[in-house]
Structures are given as structure tokens and as C-alpha cells.
Write a protein that binds this DNA or RNA. Sequence first.
DNA 1: CAGTCTTGTGAAACCGGTTGCAGAACTCAT
DNA 2: ATGAGTTCTGCAACCGGTTTCACAAGACTG
Lengths: 346, 346
Amino acid sequence: MKKPPRGESKRGPRPRQLVTLRDIAREAGVSASTVSRIINGTVKVSEERKASVEAAIAKHDFRPHAAARGLALGRTLTIGVLSQAIDSPFYAEGLRGVERRLLAAGYAALFMSGNWNVADEERCMRKFIDHGVDGIIMFSGCLPNAAIKDFAQRCPIVVTGRHLPAPQTYSLPIKDRLGATLAMRHLIGLGHRRIAFIAGSENHPDALERLAGYREALQEARISFEPPLVAHGDWQERGGLIATTQLLESGRAFTAVFCVNDQTAYGAYLALFRAGLKVPEDVSVVGFDDLPSSSYSLPPLTSVRQSVRVLGERAAEAILALVCGRRPQAESPPVELVVRDSTRRL
Amino acid sequence: MKKPPRGESKRGPRPRQLVTLRDIAREAGVSASTVSRIINGTVKVSEERKASVEAAIAKHDFRPHAAARGLALGRTLTIGVLSQAIDSPFYAEGLRGVERRLLAAGYAALFMSGNWNVADEERCMRKFIDHGVDGIIMFSGCLPNAAIKDFAQRCPIVVTGRHLPAPQTYSLPIKDRLGATLAMRHLIGLGHRRIAFIAGSENHPDALERLAGYREALQEARISFEPPLVAHGDWQERGGLIATTQLLESGRAFTAVFCVNDQTAYGAYLALFRAGLKVPEDVSVVGFDDLPSSSYSLPPLTSVRQSVRVLGERAAEAILALVCGRRPQAESPPVELVVRDSTRRL
DNA sequence: CAGTCTTGTGAAACCGGTTGCAGAACTCAT
DNA sequence: ATGAGTTCTGCAACCGGTTTCACAAGACTG
């Protein structure tokens, strides 16, 4: 019962740096310190030495060893980014924003997926710590706040989609409720009264807030809330398809569907299509997130837009600030409704 | 004109490890070597010491410092993964596969996007090297083979979508031509003769191969190749929309469109929709890649499937093998045609 | 021209792990 | 009781950078 070493069981020989800083120093006839100073520009060095060192560096195409530098500096220039699934178009947008902004600052991103699952999220977080990331960005996961605070003692954390006041931590809330009311007011303004809602998974905070927005808007318009008009999906096409199909089979009348996110709306589209119903002639549909592909759905989807890409950029800015010991100033991006062709006046 | 240091201009104080291996050793009354050996299970250690060391580790929730370990071991347990855009559903699928397989082996993935652009790809590769990755996976980029061979001298590389025989390198070709002929034979078998092709960007090797497959299938069926039936897109929805629109406006008759990838097909869908044409009644459409969302397009899209996710898994297996000094044995996944509702018999 | 102030440089310590080597302790056979 | 063989453990060196500190050389001041 020997515990296998980390990683793969078989390993090759221990790899070495082909050319080290001291090799360069020897070749240029200076000390290692001088080479280090030239590379980092930390202290002024005489022109002639600088030239000969730079020549030696170029000649051997020398690149400092990352781990060694990381050890000495206490930094890895790496940020861990936790999303729920790297292949979800929603998170992909966010990751893109993060990547852009981090790259510009010289940082690289370690992406991992939590799979909407506390255990996986926790595992990812530990892995980030083990990899020595300088900071972590969490896209709204299901990890309890207490756990996050715990991790935050080891490295700064930026979390989107929730409010979490704690040291070494910064939150970028998502305006779920406001967005949902925007969508609903649009439908109500078009004369719709019987509006179904395809919700997300039951325990997810974003899902609950969007549901709250749905109810709030109904109340505002003095339309009574009918529980049977709410069906639960899974944030993905499949869930939207199933939920909408059930809703149709239940026989409850409705003239519009508000979906908790765009992927759910795509599923709803297919369910309506199979039932021979046309969007928007027979049923109006509104999504949430305004994914890039929503401009290309048939018909192009009306959706609530709070740019996830910008959210990612802001999150990246915030984590960089935290890492450098500054106070982040990033704000959540604005929410707006993008009206396309999936909704019509009754 | 002072050169700013790497990363952000302002940095906080140099962070230190809160509790080190030697702290644990002192607390447990053993030497640092013993603690290291217990953590890695490299050598047998007496039960009593083991217990007291593990107690101390648990008490302080000690985690070894990644950079220090990386320095000593010469490994970072990190793999660089280059795709063209992290928010492209195509690459996202592949990244997902890579992530799964790497995580299982204890490795983490550093993802970066090359943006279909040689300069960016090169920059990413350098960044990977600078970050000390143990290996690199490249999803079919536009970097010339010579450049790749160059990078391969510093660390092993697995590349998909091309054939590149070189030491420290492994290729997983994509069966573009075969896939394209499958799609075309399907359309031709349904009685289509005037088949348009929406190609990708002109210089991309995958695009050229798919075009070659298109022509090959035409020739096989003794249908003459008509250059005006080929339009160029950009691998994305937008390009498919524009190209199809132009094709329609050109007045050339066609009964089917084969698109270089699914995203292009989504754009074609929208163009046809706007022109009042129905799929598949008026025009049949076939895509390539079988993205997950293609089951949910309206109508669900017939597409060539060579699972990118599996490709990613295979690539991950191959790079792990290379890193451990073994010979990779991974094969490209099989290609097949998935027939859905976007094609019909003439 | 002596004394103080800069400025550039190298030796050595340090970051926090891993590991070769040698010695201690313990087993077992003679 | 003694020697050989085995198992466990600690010392010290090492991985490859960065940085403190001391010092020498040159610039400036009175």
C-alpha cells in the first residue's frame, strides 16, 4: 500500500535549466547579482556591462527559471480562475475578459471548472493554493461564504455574483433581480399577462434572485403569481427543453416565456418548435446573459445583457489590485435589455 | 525612462510562506528531510514519527510551497494549452477534454488564446516557457512548423490538426478531408447537385483540407466544381452570415450548403431565415464539428462529428506521456456524420 | 586636499522545498 | 558476543533566482 508520488506514477529524470543566470554572469564576466539587476531593471548598471550581459543573454536565448524566480520573489504571476464549466458559453465569455486583462498585466490564468458542485469547487481551490497562485477569481459558485473566507486567508479572492465582505476579498455582485425585472417589464409592456418562467437549479443564488425579480415585476403590475407557470431547468439547453415541454403538456396557457438564461431559452426554442409553435408569433421569449450566439438564434433572441466579458475584465482588475495591496475599485457592469426579434406586442 | 518591473508597476511587500516545512519539522521534533519524505511517501518512515508529523501538518493546515517544490523537482505540474479563443465553443470543447484528463493526473492547465494570429501565438508560447510549464498542447494554430520545433527544444509539445514529426513532439491530425467528403456524400446521396461551400479563412490548413474534401467528393460524383459556389467566411457566425447573404444575392442557384464549421452554419441559418428560405425545405445545410449547441439549433443541424473533447483528452494523454519520457500512443478520435433535421432528400 | 555623498558592484545569505550520503539503530545469524 | 545486513534518520548540499550589505571608486563640497 505504497502511496504513489504526486502526478503520474512514472517520471523521467529531473529536468535542469539548460543555461542559468550564473552561466550568463560567467560568460559576461560579471556577478550573478548584476545579471539579475539588468534583467529586472531594479538598479542602474553601467552601459558597457549591460551590453555584454545582454549579448550573452541573446546568444543563449536565456530565460530565467520561473520556479526559482517565484521562490525568491514569493510570486508566481499566476491567477487561479474558477468557473463552473470551461465549455459553457456563459463562463467562456467571462474567462475571455479575465484572460485579456491578466495577460496585459503580465499574469497568466489557471482555469478550472467546479461543475456546479461544492466538492469539485473545493478541490479546485485547494489546487490553486497548491499551485501557488497569487490570487483567485471565482465566478459565482456554490461554495459557502465561510469556506471562501477561509481560503482568503491564504490568498486574495475576487468573487462575482455575491456579496462577501471579508479581508483580502472583493465582490462584484451580478444585478440579477434588476435584470429580471427589466425583462419582465418589457413583456408586460407588450401586453403579456400570462408569462411563464423557466428557472435555474433550485438552490443557486443567481437563480433565486432572478426568480425574485420575476415575482417583483408581476406584483408591480398587479398580476398574480401562479406557481404552475414556473418550471425548473438546469441552466442549460436540455433543461430548458424539458421544462418547456412539460409546461406545454400541462395545458396551462401562456403567451410569453422568460428564461433564467440564454441557454435555457435555446432549449425552450426547440420545445416550442417541436410543438409547432412559432416565436414570436405564438409565444414571446426572453433570455438572460445575451450570449454572443443569441444574435444568431432563430429568431434572434431578446435578452438581458450584463456583459460577462466586462465582468471578467473587472474581476481581473480587482484581483490585480488586491495582489498589489491596493484597494480595488471595480464596479459591476451595467444591465440593459437588448430587444431583438423573439418578442412581440400582443 | 525607467523600465517598469514585470507585472503591475506597484507591488506589495514580498509575501512569505506562513508555515514552512522546517516549522513542521521543529514542531514534530524531526528533521526537514523526514517531513519531506512523509509528504511524498518516497521512503518508509516509522509510524510514530509519521503520526506526529501528520498531526503537525493537520494542525497548521500546512501546504508545501509550490515554487520551492518546482525549483527542487524541476517540474511545475503545469501544462500550457494554446487555443485560438477560449470563448469559441469549438475550442472550449477541446479545453474541457484537456482539463479533465490533466486534473486526473494532478496537473493544472494554463490556457491562453492565440487569436488566429501568429504574433499572439508566439507570445503565448513564450509566456508558457517563462511560466515554466512542463509541456504544451497546441490546438491547430498558424505558427509555422519551424517555430514549433524551436519551442520543442525547451519543452515537449503536442499539436493537433497537423503532422509534425520532430523530437519531443507528437501530432494528432484532424481528419478534415475525410469528414468533408462524408458530409458531401450525404448531400449528394440525397440528390443534391448544386452544393455551395462556405469556407474558412483562406490560409488556414484545416480550411484548405475541408475545401479539398469538398472538391474531392464533387469529383467522385462527376459534378463539376464551380468556384462561384464557394464563399469565404471567418469560422464564425458573422462570416457565415455575410458569405451566405452574398451567395444568395449573387443569384446562383443551389439546393444545399456545406459549411466549414458549425458556427459558420449558424450564420448561414440566419441569412437563409432573413431571405425567407426554410431549412431544410428550401435549402439543406451541413456543418462540421458537431458542437453541443447544434442539437438545439432550429432545425437541429446535421454535422460532421470528430469529438473535440475526446481530441483534447487524447492530447492531454499524449503530453503526459511525453513529460514522463514515455512514447505517446494516442490516436485521433474517429469521424462520423451525425444526421439531424437540416438536410432532406430532393 | 581631506571629508562626505553618491553610485555601481560582488560576496553571501536567503527563498522553501528535495535528496545523496553517511551514520545510528536495530535485526538476525554465527 | 560479534559481525554483517537492513532500515531509518539527519546533515548538508542543491535547485536558480533575488536582495541585503559592505565596500571601492568617483563626484562633489568647503
